[in-house]
Design a protein around this nucleic acid. Structure first.
Lengths: 374, 374
DNA sequence: TCTTGAAAGGAAAACGTTTTCCTATATAAT
DNA sequence: ATTATATAGGAAAACGTTTTCCTTTCAAGA
């Protein structure tokens, strides 16, 4: 049924070895004509290699594992996409597993991946006890992508939260703000610590006093941002701007400010962090800093590929910078704001439209298709 | 280095065949003690099976391919998660590929998956010319998951858009609304057609006139909803409720209504469709119907597994029902609304907290770990 | 003319399993 | 006592490749 290398050999009147050599452009010297002949025969027979069998010999599956916290988390898909886009040209596929932050699930997953002889693993925001612990479990290369805690292991990628916080704080300062409040995430998160440091250092750099009462702690959710901003808005000396450590809390702050009868950005400006999809179509649209998920994915894939190919053992951790996205809520963009399309939803709809058109064209041109089902 | 079945055989003083039989609980009769002995030896040596080699013989990889439009699309991850959660207990892994709606990429992907000898494919909202065309490319079982166009192929899963539309329309009617407008998606989408039918049929069922001027067409985005609602709000006889065919347009409608100086839900009630994450923390929170992505994923995985195991060829398409989610914008929930946490973000944070706690406990209890890196 | 070496290709081992045969023993049935 | 059958286990083939090793041919260099 399925055509194997043996059948090609038979059909072409050569040996197994020659077929293999022809198909793989082997170094072994080989007559150009026989090679062509073999390839032609292979093509005619519609040969498709059995990658399993190949891997058994070569010890390379061209498959990596991606262990993620949960694929439903908002930041995970762009990271995965970054990884896959980078890996695809190299011929790699990826198997994705949810760890749900469970060390046992994670350990099992590593083992399963190993049994499938994958070439490497990327851990995305997963619960790993330590680099060494993972090392013991798998002989294969692996890389960490951290989002909210930046354990600086070798071979890891993480966002420049500190720089991003400075970026957006600086933006506020340059808009003339001097009384800038900060709503932080829970204290035990590295992201919280680093974004706070960025905020503080940028204030210092502009010789602005850091007032402790201007710093509140939230819970990363809308509600926490709301409660924190409620307090800030009651301060005798009102802040003129609020920087929330993520977009959800920024949105909460927006609500609290509005509930206090103030306007955004005229009364109080608001900025967030992460560049979540809703920031572009919420009212007012929220100025923010991107969490460069896609780019982190790319970087981690590149790192892993290097490890796989060159066998390098320890690379410096890689820090990826975010980008300032100026929208309405900071006041830099007065007037004619148009809500953005939902990133993710819109792009492919366009694409689909295009394909649909071409498809119906080709359909009317030739009636060769069997289009029973759409 | 890696321990193989051969080494177990040597160490246990038995043949290869016996080891294999012991490890696989084979039917072949076998002395209980030798089996135990072999298993013990395997365990001591830390044996891990090479699944590649096994698959070469068994023709089963316990890996399926999931070809998705784009993993960054908002509806894709929950579908994937549904698939994976269903497949995991059966020992299946999945390889995910983005087709970007490109027939060539899709064809290539199918081929690559085939070469890796996967056991089956789930197509999620992907551009496939037809069931037959795919059939020709792969000998393996496959299943379709449709979200926005419901070509009713055999072995496919799709949402009950019609029923969902009736559900939410009925909800409005029971709240006392008689003048209900509808903002539809582009006409060439099946989802648009079915949601429109549901809306109309439900009105008819309650003997409410269908007024063509009450039906507008949008673009699935906030902007389209806004523009459509702007027109609706200018009607001489104002609708008392607007049903938008998706949540983004519902949000746009909310903005247009607010801009017209009307209140939601008192002036005009609004409902959406899909239950996107933002509907729970936007103001007002939007009443909607779930697009049952997770459940569709589960259903498709179940279907595929049946196909793989029983070799059944054609199953009836499966329709998955959505659920009404009542929030603020319809008016049924007056007063004390609390914005919801972001689904996806919040759940795992809790989990992480819990793990962190247990981890630090065990850390203080025993200092055996090597926790250099977090 | 002889040796050396490159070019070309075939035979067979190897990868780590499962599975098909086959053999030997012990037990049951005749 | 002989035959049939179940139990237990080993030898070897098989899965589809790649790769090592070997052989043959032929041209170049001495």
């Amino acid at each position: 049924m399925t055509v194997t290398i043996t059948e090609i050999a038979k059909a072409a009147g050569v040996s197994l070895s020659s077929v293999s050599r022809a198909l793989n452009n082997s170094d072994h010297p080989m007559n150009m004509e026989t090679r062509q002949h073999i390839l032609r025969v292979a093509n005619e027979l519609g040969y498709q290699p059995n990658l399993l069998a190949r891997s058994l010999r070569t010890d390379r599956t061209y498959t990596i594992g991606i262990i993620v916290e949960n694929i439903q988390s908002p930041f995970i898909p762009p990271i995965i996409r970054g990884i896959q886009d980078f890996l695809k040209p190299a011929g790699y596929f990826s198997t994705i597993i949810n760890s749900d932050w469970d060390p046992h699930i994670e350990a099992d997953s590593i083992q399963s991946l190993n049994n499938r002889q994958i070439d490497g693993i990327i851990f995305v925001e997963t619960w790993h006890r330590s680099s060494n612990a993972v090392q013991k479990m798998t002989g294969k290369p692996f890389v960490f992508v951290h989002r909210l805690f930046n354990a600086r292991c070798p071979n890891s990628v993480f966002p420049d939260d500190y720089g991003g916080a400075r970026l957006v704080t600086n933006h506020l300062i340059r808009l003339g703000h001097h009384r800038i409040a900060f709503i932080n995430g829970p204290k035990d998160w590295d992201a919280s610590r680093n974004r706070l440091r960025g905020y503080q250092d940028e204030l210092l750099a502009s010789s602005i006093n850091i007032e402790p009462r201007m710093v509140k702690t939230g819970d990363w959710e809308v509600k926490g941002g709301y409660l924190a901003a409620q307090k800030l808005v009651k301060l005798k000396k009102l802040p003129t701007a609020i920087f929330a450590a993520n977009d959800l809390m920024a949105l909460g702050a927006v609500y609290a400010i509005q509930d206090a009868g103030l306007h955004i950005p005229q009364g109080v400006a608001v900025v967030g962090y992460d560049n979540r999809n809703f920031t572009g179509f919420v009212r007012p649209a929220i100025t923010t800093v991107t969490l460069p998920c896609y780019e982190m994915g790319e970087a981690s894939a590149k790192l892993l590929l290097d490890l796989i190919n060159d066998g390098v053992k320890e690379n410096e951790p890689i820090e990826v910078k975010g980008e300032l996205i100026v929208r309405e809520s900071c006041g830099a963009n007065p007037g004619k704001w148009q809500f953005e399309d939902d990133k993710g939803s819109s792009a492919w709809r366009e694409k689909r439209k295009d394909i649909l058109r071409r498809w119906s064209e080709s359909r009317s041109r030739a009636a060769t298709n069997d289009g029973t089902c759409l």
